[in-house]
């Protein structure tokens, strides 16, 4: 996570706008430490288990339009208590200009410059987007819905090939903070599949930080058949199957 920020934009980016669904002043579940989180509107996945489905639609109203200048005072107010900021979604990388402008503005602001800037993403951005964001980004958290391509497509409507590629790319760039696996009971928790997943993740980084998140029905849309939140025991069993090499697993 040692991005050099030397070439962070220095021009006035505060007028640049994005479509922002919501912000959270203090979050302890969106990256290292206490963070201000900006949820961007619009996602290119349509996950069955999404717990923020209202942030999926891309056909967005003007009332979501928010400028960097609108966000900065809110971040400044919370800044003394923060380690950093995170952009999440929706899918943050669908609005790379806005993310770049926000991170650049934070780093150019004397009160905010000590905050680190993280992206929480579904990992579908192309190489050009990651290279564009890299100079102003300190870390990324990438969701891997499923290592199996067919199951991934059932869960998200999309291929997982770009996600796997992003994980490798970001690790190579020193920007991969954590990979997140959402565990859906009976969908993506097959022991053999989890073992293959763990082996692949460890082949990228044997000490990778992997957060295993139990699906929770709260916020998710109704589904037929009903999605089952895994029990704590089921999550622990899934973790045991995934554990390879020195992977640092964190269960949520």
């Amino acid at each position: 996570m040692s991005a050099t920020l030397a070439d962070a934009a220095t021009g006035d980016v505060s007028a640049i706008t994005g479509f922002v669904a919501d912000t959270i002043t203090f979050s302890n579940v969106d990256g290292p430490g206490n963070r201000f989180v900006v949820f961007l509107q619009g996602c290119n996945f349509d996950c069955v288990a999404c717990h923020n489905p209202q942030t999926i639609p891309l056909a967005i109203g003007e009332h979501f339009r928010t400028s960097v200048a609108d966000l900065l005072p809110r971040i400044r107010r919370a800044a003394p208590f923060l380690r950093g900021i995170t952009v999440s979604g929706g899918e943050a990388t669908l609005q790379p200009d806005f993310v770049h402008a926000l991170f650049s503005a934070v780093q150019a602001d004397p009160e905010l410059a000590r905050l680190d800037c993280f992206v929480d993403s579904n990992g579908t951005a192309d190489d050009a987007t990651w290279h564009r964001l890299a100079p102003v980004t300190h870390g990324t958290m990438i969701d891997l819905k499923c290592f199996d391509p067919d199951i991934h497509e059932q869960m998200t409507g999309q291929s997982n090939a770009p996600v796997l590629h992003s994980i490798e790319l970001l690790h190579g760039m020193g920007l991969l903070y954590e990979v997140r696996l959402l565990i859906l009971q009976g969908v993506n928790d097959d022991p053999a599949l989890l073992r293959r997943t763990g082996e692949w993740l460890a082949s990228v980084d044997p000490a990778m930080r992997v957060k295993m998140i139990a699906f929770r029905a709260h916020g998710a849309r109704p589904h037929e058949p009903a999605l089952v939140p895994p029990s704590h025991e089921a999550l622990e069993a899934a973790a045991a199957n995934l554990q390879v090499a020195d992977l640092q697993l964190c269960l949520v």
Partner: peptide
Amino acid sequence: ETAVRNPEAMVDIIRGAFRQ
């Protein structure tokens, strides 16, 4: 309860409280 999985966040808030 989410605080338990991210003690660093409490460290940030404590540091911030004293900074303020």
